[in-house]
């Protein structure tokens, strides 16, 4: 993704601590209250300018799961029959720390 000033691009890039980049829609990223704050144009943060968010304390496996959850949340926000979201037990704690940080 070109990191030049694209204030309201449709996609944003999330970068994990170990350097993997995840390109998700802005809408999906806004599921996380923390990311919403970082990326909202009004905030004037660097993240909002570049549409790139570096999440140093979250590794790629975890971030992938979080991206999955964001789209899951987006898809089933208004439906009643929601399928279960699968979280592998071994990653639950790590994911909880990340989810707490991202406020999702």
């Amino acid at each position: 993704m070109d990191s030049e000033v694209v204030p309201s691009s449709k996609y944003v890039t999330l970068i994990s601590g170990d350097g993997f980049e995840f390109i998700v829609t802005r809408e999906a990223a806004f599921v996380s209250a923390t990311l919403r704050g970082m990326l909202s144009v009004a905030s004037n943060f660097e993240e909002a300018q570049t549409n790139r968010v570096l999440l140093e304390n979250i590794n790629a496996t975890c971030l992938e799961k979080i991206c999955e959850y964001m789209y899951y949340n987006l898809t089933y926000k208004d439906s009643v029959d929601v399928p279960d979201f699968d979280v592998p037990p071994e990653m639950a704690l790590e994911l909880l720390v990340a989810a707490d940080y991202l406020n999702t």
Partner: peptide, 10 residues
Amino acid sequence: NVPKLQDLCI
């Protein structure tokens, strides 16, 4: 409708 990720993990 959709539980928070934190609650899922908890």
